[in-house]
Simulated scan of single mutants.
Amino acid sequence: MFLSFHPEIGSTGNSLASPANTFLFKPANLVAIVTLSRGRCGLSKCVTCYLLAMAVADLLVVIFNIIPKVIYFYYKPPVCNIINTMSYVSVASSVWLTVAFTLDRTVAICFQRLKIRYCTEKGAAIVIAVVSLLSLFTNVPWYFTYRSYICWVSLDFIFSRVWKAFDWGHRVLTPVVPFLLILLLNVVTIRHILMTSVARRRLRCQRNREEKDDQEMKNRRRSIILLFTLSASFILLWITHVVILAVESISMQYFVMTPSYVVGQLVGIMLQSFSSCTNMFIYAITQRKFRQEVKNVVRYPFRPILNFCRS
């Protein structure tokens, strides 16, 4: 009864982080990091920076938010304080980097003048650094939620108004605000694409000498598909968790333990955890060159053996 039901705190979600799931998550993110760092996926340097940062953040989520839950009760302060804090930091970084990438693609598609200055490799690096630092500083207070000799949430966190205000603010900033921002940015992007498509069709009808295929739209299609797929994955995998947080915040019931409510919480946590390993598969599905690079990365360690066998 002393624990509020958080995905990152306590032992409530231990059953979700089985060793099998852990071993599935980690290699997928590592392969994505290695593949993207080679810079041969046919993506712009700006997009590659964002995707690489997102892959690193997802890997940190696996390290600090999923793996520790398998052996949670073996930790003692201050180890559990650090792991708990980094769990929140990694989740916040992953979520807000998704927002940053969505904003970057919205600017690139909808605002051509701003695109020249904003959608650059340097601009992406600055945004990633700012998001990472803000994610770190805004989640430092979680370090002080454990104050006993065991990894147990302190009574101050449960009953203090200051901690309740901080907890409520955290729920709003991650993931409610990012969830709404991603929805809004995608609506803006879809509206612009529809309007632009209509205008371009009319223009092409007036120019009979123009080629049948619109090469510019083809070049932008991959980026648009990647954006919408990532956004849809984030929204679908986080929506259960967002709804649960909204119910908690509105009803202010932190100790509801009805079977249906607990099942909803566990499903939300499970889907949230899955969101940390799906991006690599999304890249593989939507990007042909990424699939080829993944094959090259996987084959690379075995090349000396194959060359030796052929010689």
Rank of each mutant, 00 (worst) to 15 (best):
V47N: 11
P175Q: 03
R171M: 11
S87G: 15
S90Q: 09
C80T: 02
S148V: 00
E211H: 04
E293H: 08
F5Y: 08
L183D: 03
A124C: 05
F144N: 12
T240S: 09
S135E: 07
N186S: 12
N14C: 10
I182K: 06
S273Y: 10
L114Y: 09
H192N: 08
R161E: 11
D104Y: 03
G39D: 01
A124M: 05
N307V: 00
A92K: 11
P259H: 08
L114W: 12
I182C: 07
L227R: 00
K69H: 15
A125Y: 01
T196M: 09
S15Y: 03
W163Y: 14
Y283E: 01
Q287W: 00
K26P: 07
S93D: 09
I9P: 00
V131T: 14
L16K: 05
R299H: 04
L16W: 00
S223P: 01
K218R: 12
S197P: 02
V127P: 04
G39C: 04
L184R: 06
Y118C: 11
S249R: 03
V61Q: 13
L60F: 14
L97C: 12
E121I: 01
P77W: 04
T120Q: 10
R303D: 10
V172M: 06
F308T: 03
I9K: 01
F281I: 15
Y254M: 11
E211N: 01
A53L: 02
Q206M: 12
T106S: 13
S15I: 13
N307T: 05
N65L: 10
S223Y: 01
F23C: 13
Y72R: 13
N84Q: 13
H6L: 09
M195P: 00
